[in-house]
């Protein structure tokens, strides 16, 4: 477990800011104790200081996961969020999309969201902004990138994509092995 370098920290926060904007600060500056980002095998984990101290007693090669895995750095040094980060993105999300019931399954199988499946969209969602996808009963299903801004959505063709799929909770089953 090592600290993220300054460059990588910056890349991570830039990515998070696309989804939760100013709320990134809330992830770092928490009233309930110190939380930090740690890196192992290019994966980034969000851990409380207490658990980190305990984890440091384990040899790195035997440590599979600690805290919450936020995602990983690719070989080209870009950051990719994993579904596991959803529980931290969802409460702070700025752009949101709600799916109609029939479109839920489509999304959970890893498909993009078509206009026809769009139930509701938060106001002022910009194009290519990170959005969290909810079911109509406000259950977070995953996240993606808005393919169109809110205004454009209104006039979009029903079959055209509104949101590009990035991660969904179906991955817990579909790609169980790759998640960690």
């Amino acid at each position: 477990m090592k600290r993220l370098s300054e460059e990588r920290t910056k890349i991570l926060f830039e990515k998070l800011a696309k989804y939760i904007g100013q709320n990134v600060k809330l992830l770092i500056d928490r009233p309930d104790g110190l939380y930090c980002f740690r890196e192992q095998k290019d994966r980034v984990y969000y851990v409380s200081e207490k658990i980190l101290k305990l984890a440091n007693t384990i040899q790195p090669e035997f440590l599979i996961s600690v805290g919450t895995c936020f995602g990983k750095f690719t070989k080209s040094n870009k950051f990719r969020l994993h579904v596991t980060a959803l529980s931290y993105l969802a409460p702070y999300a700025q752009g949101k999309i709600w799916l109609k019931a029939p479109a839920e399954q489509q999304f959970l199988y890893g498909n993009h969201v078509a206009k026809s499946g769009l139930g509701r969209i938060s106001e002022n969602a910009e194009k290519y902004q990170g959005v969290v996808v909810y079911s109509m009963s406000d259950l977070p299903l995953g996240f993606g990138v808005a393919a169109r801004s809110t205004a454009e959505c209104k006039h979009a063709d029903p079959m055209s994509s509104v949101c590009f799929h990035q991660a969904d909770i179906g991955e817990y089953i579909r790609s169980e092995e790759d998640l960690l």
């Binding site: 926060f13 770092i28 500056d29 930090c36």
Partner: peptide, 17 residues
């Protein structure tokens, strides 16, 4: 120390935002 790391991180966040 944890607090120092937090302040460093906050600085980076500021610069990003």
């Amino acid at each position: 120390s944890g607090t120092q790391e937090r302040s460093e991180n906050l600085n980076i966040v500021e610069s990003v935002l």
